[in-house]
Simulated scan of single mutants.
Amino acid sequence: MIKVQTQDFNIAEEYALLSDNNQTDGAVVFFVGLVRDFNQNSQIKSLTLEHYPAMTDKVLTRLEQQAKTRWPVNRVAIVHRVGELNLSEQIVFVGVTSPHRDAAFEAAQFIMDQLKTRAPFWKKEQTMQGEHWVDAKDSDEQAAKAWNNS
């Protein structure tokens, strides 16, 4: 299940979609990313996320398929918000189910690491000094590349 949307998401509802009527999986792992107030030496006031819909859907679908190929994963949920987001608002939900926790944790981590570098989302931060587009961090690039070597 992949959703890119402007409206907020409900964690309990997303969890229910992963766990309801699911007797085969013993693990549900999820991650929620929030807008924080500080990034790269700047005080953040808000964040604007833009994307290219057709390309975004393809990349997120490919990430879901790759996770299901690499690990015994049954259900995957990726919800990513776009538009203007204020401090503490939810940005992303990644949820994974698997018969065992190790696979669920690894698949969720893989999806997030790849999403940060491969999905065509563009972030603009509004700061006290003005606004600017955010480049991918080297640490995110390194985390994504590490999966290619494992």
Rank of each mutant, 00 (worst) to 15 (best):
N21M: 12
A119F: 07
P99W: 13
D138M: 13
V29Y: 05
T48I: 12
A27V: 12
W122L: 07
F93R: 02
E131D: 09
H80D: 07
P53Q: 15
D113K: 01
A54N: 15
R81F: 02
I111G: 07
D102N: 06
H80Q: 08
Q23D: 13
M128C: 06
E14Q: 05
P99H: 09
M128H: 12
V79D: 00
H100F: 08
A107H: 06
R81A: 01
L17N: 06
Q66G: 06
A108K: 02
A144R: 06
L115N: 07
V76Q: 07
F105C: 02
F31Y: 08
V79S: 02
F30R: 02
R81V: 04
V82Q: 03
I11F: 00
H132E: 11
S42Q: 14
V92D: 01
W133E: 06
L87H: 13
A146V: 03
T117F: 01
E131A: 08
R62D: 14
H132Y: 13
L85S: 04
F105V: 03
M1Q: 04
D20P: 04
F9W: 00
E13H: 04
I78T: 09
K58D: 11
E125R: 11
Q7D: 10
A54V: 15
M112E: 08
E84F: 01
N86L: 08
Q40D: 15
P120L: 08
N74K: 14
A12E: 06
V134E: 10
D102Q: 11
W147A: 05
E50M: 05
N74P: 04
S139Q: 14
V73A: 02
N41G: 08
Q129S: 12
V82Y: 08
F38Y: 15
A107Q: 09
E106F: 01
H80P: 00
A12C: 00
T97W: 06
